[in-house]
Write a protein that binds this DNA or RNA. Structure first.
Lengths: 154, 154
DNA sequence: ATAGAATCTCAAGTGCACTAGAGGTCAAGT
DNA sequence: ACTTGACCTCTAGTGCACTTGAGATTCTAT
């Protein structure tokens, strides 16, 4: 059933960098934040388990989308660093990401609407624009909808 | 006494801050980048025309969505600072924004799909994941799809 | 007229997410 | 054995997007 692959194969930091497109220096930085982890050779060089490629790829995606590393950290909180994550581990993380990404996408959709319906027509009535509410940001701070007061309505 | 004043015409920096939720220091910073503009009183204090509220509100929205100020700057390139923008001015800017936001939204949608179809099921085959391509980022650098080589496919 | 809040400039500091460089070590090919 | 490139740690520097603080001035209300 199980195909012949070597899940315990270890990659150097340079291989990780080439295969993910993430700079070597960035990988070391991510390790310093415990976003990823490695084992060391007798000569103190890093060796990464293959499953770290997933983590790094996801970090890269998050970066492309402007998601701060602190959020990534939170998302990965229950995905183990020390062993290949199970399906359940990834599923849990996946659900958390999806919730956040959905919020973010909805924010963008609302902004598109605002632009079409308001700026597009020249009025920009932002009175009811939920986007000005910080809750719409990914990783909301819970600061509340204070900002809506006094937004120009023309 | 100011002899010629229509009370709602010009806003102080404090009023701008209160009505947009953007810090006074940030407003001064935006002005230094020519994202917004003001006139000065005889005593050298800033006074903002009402239409600057729109610009600031949009900058705030962009910030919430992680859009860099340089992109905002590009978007506003043809929206005049010195007079109330016309419908056409805003419409042109609106179209540019929409294009970028659509790309960004599509990127998020694709990531959601990846998470559902790949991480969700535990395989994370990112072989064909367009998100790892920097072109998907808002304000793409044009660096090309180099990153897709060697992404783990298990 | 004057107190006190708001504003001004300019310089420096903060936090994030890295990158660059110095100086040294390790590992693979010949 | 030797060479070369990849790797190591550590410190410092970069760019963005601001914030903070000092010291001075201006505006508004009593």
């Amino acid at each position: 059933m199980t195909p012949d692959h070597a899940p315990d194969e270890l990659l150097t930091i340079g291989e990780m960098s080439r295969r993910t497109g993430v700079a070597v220096s960035a990988l070391r930085y991510y390790e310093s934040l415990d976003l990823i982890a490695s084992v060391r050779t007798s000569g103190n060089q890093r060796r990464f388990p293959r499953h770290m490629l997933r983590r790094v790829s996801l970090i890269a995606v998050a970066k492309n989308l402007g998601v701060p590393l602190s959020d990534v950290q939170a998302t990965f909180a229950n995905v183990p660093l020390d062993r290949t994550p199970s399906h359940e581990d990834w599923q849990r993380a996946s659900r958390a990401w999806k919730r956040q990404l959905e919020e973010r996408r909805r924010g963008i959709e609302r902004l598109e609407l605002e632009l079409t319906g308001c700026i597009g027509c020249g009025c920009l009535s932002m009175k009811a624009c939920a986007l000005l509410n910080p809750d719409d940001a990914l990783a909301a701070t819970g600061a509340g909808p204070r900002r809506l007061e006094g937004i120009p309505d023309e």
